[in-house]
Design a protein around this nucleic acid. Structure first.
Lengths: 216, 216
DNA sequence: TAGATTGTTAATCGATTAACAATC
DNA sequence: TAGATTGTTAATCGATTAACAATC
């Protein structure tokens, strides 16, 4: 577990990006203000939860008026840290690694892929979206010289733990972990797991245990 | 929200795949039995939680002995529904869709990619792992004829809602949704969201709010 | 001002942990 | 049998919802 400045619960944090997404869409559609009640209807959560969640970070609304969409959007951006650029590398340039490297939308939220690494000789030197695939032995140097914040791990689980330790030594701040293993690292390094096969199993469970006949 | 036969909480279900993973690794290493206490140390959860979680589904252990690894592994497989084959299609054969299609490991858990769909003329007819990319207008027929359980959505959000409705009409059971939008579907259709950019934002939040100095 | 809606406290609900009798 | 460890009940903790006074 990691030490947070203040102790906002994991549940609250996990809802912030969704608020951010809805506010972005409201902004696009030209909506200037929104009440917790109206937003709750759209998002299918309680208005109470929205107000509680937001008030963990400060009073962004105004009685009798609601929330200014644009203002709240940028405040949440600040809270999430997506108002700043993050230098990100991807370790493992297989199918998934390359797919993520190709995904342009991340850079919209400030996540810029500045490096790609792999130990497969046959693909080293190739470019993905203008970023060259480098050998693993260039990893340490690159992280330190290029102020890399985030490392994405798209490598087999066998290698993941060892690489993660290397990353920790280089002072990486966060690891976006797609490897099928838990990483056990010091508290000052944040890990966000994306376990795709486990997500698929959850889907499978819910399919198996959902009453097919019932419609809402 | 969907109707479940019995009401096992979402929190419990989300932990099952992780138990399954650890039991698989124990099996591979030849461990025959494990106590909740020992497993709790490895997984970094409380023994109490493990016993509570498992007892939602039945008494798989034995007093004074613990749990038989192999037996429990296969029982959880049944609970998760990964003891059976699932026919899966992928809609959207862009970078992410193709990466998922190429990922062999899913078929180990019984998820077999039997179809790939896209509306981009230039890639229709191409093959990924022996599966041909088909045009979207073949979707309905294919699902019905080939007993497709699960559809993976790797298409832009603009198209996702409409396609999801089509899928619902064809009687798909589950949607693995990578599109950046919520899908609002009848209760008998299960949706599992994988919102990658939101996962990255959570990572960003935790980086911004973690004390860099503290080591564990 | 009156109406709307927030910020915040209190009540409820659910999930996790602790404890221990049952039992292998 | 004695020791170990489960299954399960009870206690605690935390998160969500409801309520309402504050206030724009």
């Amino acid at each position: 577990m990691s030490n947070k400045d203040n102790s906002i619960s994991k549940a609250v944090v996990s809802r912030l990006p969704r608020y951010y997404r809805y506010l972005g869409e409201l902004m696009e559609s030209g909506t200037e203000r929104i009440s917790s009640g109206e937003l709750s209807k759209r998002m299918n959560v309680t208005a109470s939860q929205i107000r509680q969640d937001l008030n963990n970070f400060g009073g962004f609304g105004q009685q009798g008026y609601g929330y200014n969409v644009k203002y709240l959007y940028f405040e949440i951006a600040k809270i999430l840290g997506v108002d700043k650029k993050h230098n990100m590398i991807i370790i493992g340039a297989g199918n998934l690694g390359r797919a993520l490297a190709n995904y342009a939308n991340f850079s919209k939220s400030g996540f810029v892929v500045t490096g790609l690494f792999d130990n497969n000789e046959t693909i080293i030197g190739k470019e993905v979206r203008g970023v060259k695939i480098q050998p693993m032995d260039k990893l340490k140097e690159f992280i330190i010289k290029n102020d890399v914040d985030i490392a994405t791990l798209t490598i087999p689980k066998k290698e993941a733990k060892k690489v993660a330790e290397t990353l920790a030594e280089c002072g990486i701040k966060g690891i976006w972990n797609f490897a099928h293993t838990d990483l056990d690292l010091p508290d000052n390094i944040v890990v966000e797991n994306v376990h795709l096969s486990e997500s698929l199993m959850e889907l499978s469970y819910n399919i198996a245990h959902t009453d097919t006949k019932s419609q809402r």
